[in-house]
Amino acid sequence: MDNAKPIVSIRGLAKTYAGGHQALKGIDLDIREGEILALLGPNGAGKTTLISLICGLVSPSAGTVTVAGHDIIKDYRKTRELIGLVPQELTLGAFEKVGNTVLFSRGLYGKAPNAAFIDDLLAELSLSDKKDNMVQQLSGGMKRRVLIAKALSHEPRVLFLDEPTAGVDVELRKDMWAIVERLRQSGVTIILTTHYIEEAEEIADRVGVISGGELLELEDKSTLMAKLGKKQLVIELKNAVDTVPEQLSEYGLELSANGSKLTYTFDARQERTGMTALLTSLSQAGLAVKDLNTSQSSLEDIFVDIVKADA
């Protein structure tokens, strides 16, 4: 996977807006062809600015971006043809029919109308019966589907989904992941931004963490979780205690469930996890163990850790 040539290559990309706000502070990033990359970050982290720069909506202050080897400014026609964008906001002209607005998008990208393709696309997004409806009559979820149809109307090779599931119902989310999966199988590269970590966890191959205009982490999802994953050992006691005994203070245990549960947090990366020592100490302290349970931290916890450490 590491040898795969990047479809999008970003070097030293920075953006300072006219008001002086520095949205991106020199991003280096290679996006591999055919992967699903999730960009995680809090609001205002610079995720949308990054996407906007690649798509040509914002001019960079410094740095370069190439898509399939073409510079996004010098060869903008070549790069933009390859890119589809689903924006975060539900931005749709109100007075247009669904079918027309999707055809319009296809035309903008220089593709001749292809009624059969558009019909299939609308069907896949459960929009067939809405083809002649005015966009303004649609619900929020339906509008989101139209935006996806528009972004896919010119058969892009790279698809950007900016916060794709904000305000989306379960059904659409399911449909959307089905489409993402189908696109991935056809070789389309997908970059999505989100602050729903489950989303990244569910579908991404790699996860990048952006905060304060910087790319803090970029790892294969599993590596990231292994690298930074904390594990927790939950110890259920036979008899509840009021306080954590003095001789166990070095383990930083947390007491919960009315004194019947002790939680020990340790770093899964360490060779010595301290678990054996803890269990020995427990018996020395005279605490009888009823049950043991370990759990790995989720991406969410990892993400919070990274962003906090940077703050």
Binding site: C55, G56, L57, R77, K78, T91, G110
Partner: peptide, 18 residues
């Protein structure tokens, strides 16, 4: 003005169009 106002201009601005 209207596409600027509603935000739909993004599509024109990100399209391969001079």
């Amino acid at each position: 003005f209207f596409p600027k106002f509603t935000g739909t201009i993004y599509e024109v601005m990100s399209a391969p169009i001079s």
